[in-house]
């Protein structure tokens, strides 16, 4: 008798084809919601839909929409939150959809990775923890990843919306202490 083993990364309940279809539908619903909003404020901008990994991605492109991004992307995050709720109302399931506006997320990702790498270099050089500016959970994740890729550890401290990344200096190696003949 043959048993089918699900490939890694694929949900047990949902085959990849159905998942893609579900995510495409999420994108369509999100685009409907955003389109009527853009019409209401008489803003230009086209909607692009894509599926990346296990998430639907909807991007508003082709117009100056800085107003809808806001400082450190706060307006973008708020619009994403509302769009997820609008999608969830239609599908009955929680949405993890990503909204991007004018390529902001890709740009910000590059900046934050660079920031994480620089903070790691400083923590290594000075041997002291480096505290960064408050950021959203999404942004902190990117910084944590960049720090980890430099071989250092980081954690988050503080309470939202003032939660921030702290990059930790390298720990003195335990082995060296134990082996020190003068201890």
């Amino acid at each position: 008798m043959e048993t089918s083993v699900p490939t890694s990364g694929e949900s047990l309940e949902e085959p990849a084809g159905e998942r893609t279809k579900r995510l495409e539908q999420e994108g369509e619903l999100a685009a409907d919601y955003l389109e009527s909003f853009l019409d209401a404020i008489d803003a230009d901008g086209d909607l692009d839909m894509a599926v990346e990994g296990d998430r639907a991605v909807v991007s508003i492109v082709g117009a100056d929409l800085r107003q809808l991004i806001g400082r450190q992307g706060v307006v973008l995050e708020a619009l994403q939150e509302l769009t997820r709720l609008a999608v969830a109302r239609q599908t009955g399931e929680r949405s993890r959809l990503i909204l991007d506006i004018g390529g902001y997320r890709a740009r910000r990702r590059r900046e934050l990775s660079e920031l994480g790498r620089k903070a790691a270099a400083r923590a290594r050089q000075t041997g002291e923890a480096v505290r960064l500016e408050p950021m959203s959970a999404f942004e902190r994740k990117i910084v944590h990843d960049a720090v980890a890729s430099e071989g250092l550890r980081s954690e988050s401290e503080g309470v939202e919306p003032d939660r921030r990344v702290v990059v930790l200096p390298p720990e003195p190696t335990d082995v060296a202490l134990v082996d020190d003949p003068y201890l």
Binding site: F37, A40, I41, D42, Q67, L82, L85, R89
Partner: peptide
């Protein structure tokens, strides 16, 4: 700062945003 939208436009925008998320 960009020019603020007129109150009627804001009303319309808020209504659209809310209509999409309620039952």
């Amino acid at each position: 700062q960009p020019t603020p939208l007129a109150p009627e436009v804001l009303e319309d925008a808020l209504e659209h945003l809310v209509r999409g998320i309620v039952s």
